[in-house]
Amino acid sequence: MVKRKSLNTYIIFVASLVLVYYVLVCVWPFTFNLYLSFRKTDLLTENKFIGLGNFRFLWKDPVFWRSLRNNIFYLAVMVPLGIVTSLFAAALIYRTTGAMRKIYTALYFAPVVTSMVAAALIWQLLYHPKIGLFAQILSSLFRIDPNNLTFLQNPATALLCIIFMDVWKDSGLRTVIFLAGMDEMPDSIFESAKIEGASEWRQFFTLTVPLLRPQLIFVGAIYSINAIRLFVPVYMMTGNPPGGPANSTKVLAIQMYQEAFYGLRFGYGATISMIIFAILVGLVVLELRSFEQRWEY
């Protein structure tokens, strides 16, 4: 640390820019959001204090519980599925070398750099019962009536379809993170395991996976947070109004957006975003806790 006691213009200039910006974009909006969550307002004509009215309404709002359930379902399916598939891909790519390894990484990584909006639009059509690739393949291979292949139009499968798209979209990123972790591992422990006659499967589960703990926690945390903040894929893939059919894909961020900007219930929208915030804080605390626990080679 360079010792400087006096304030100079650089410190005053940069520090006040940072302070003013974060007050404007973070502190004030959060405070105002909290204030709004206790009011009933359309931001134009009506604006009155209703105490815990929004929270009481939330407690009895079946759409809110459905949204929350969908977020939790999304997290519970997407995070493990995403981790397992990428772990599998990383373990396979790890065994390749040179140009082939580069080619595989490039192929698996390609969806990561494409925009989520475009990816969601492509998959919306891939899932289409008549013109989509999945329906065409299934109907010509197994002679299933394409009218029965309603992926996104079926409340039972719509959310799962979005999860598959999301797993595909970012699997390359998770694979690359795991691969970097595997490359860092010392060869010596694997050699001694080989000498002791441990099978490759055993080595994978007793050495590789435990040693990947930091990467696994990191990936788990990031995608849990993404699952709670989920918006774009649902908005893009479930038509108008988003969240259908029959609220089967409605998630908190979508409901918040609709309550505020379609229904002009800004107070209630702010209340839902307080819930999203509370869940995010919980997840971040959980992540920091698991990072603090020590791991050793």
Binding site: F32, L36, L43, F261, A270
Partner: peptide, 19 residues
């Protein structure tokens, strides 16, 4: 303060930012 802002992304405070 800057680090804490990670927990309050613009998508959570849409309504205040919009106003």
């Amino acid at each position: 303060l800057t680090l804490a802002s990670v927990m309050i992304p613009p998508h959570i405070v849409l309504v205040p930012l919009y106003t």
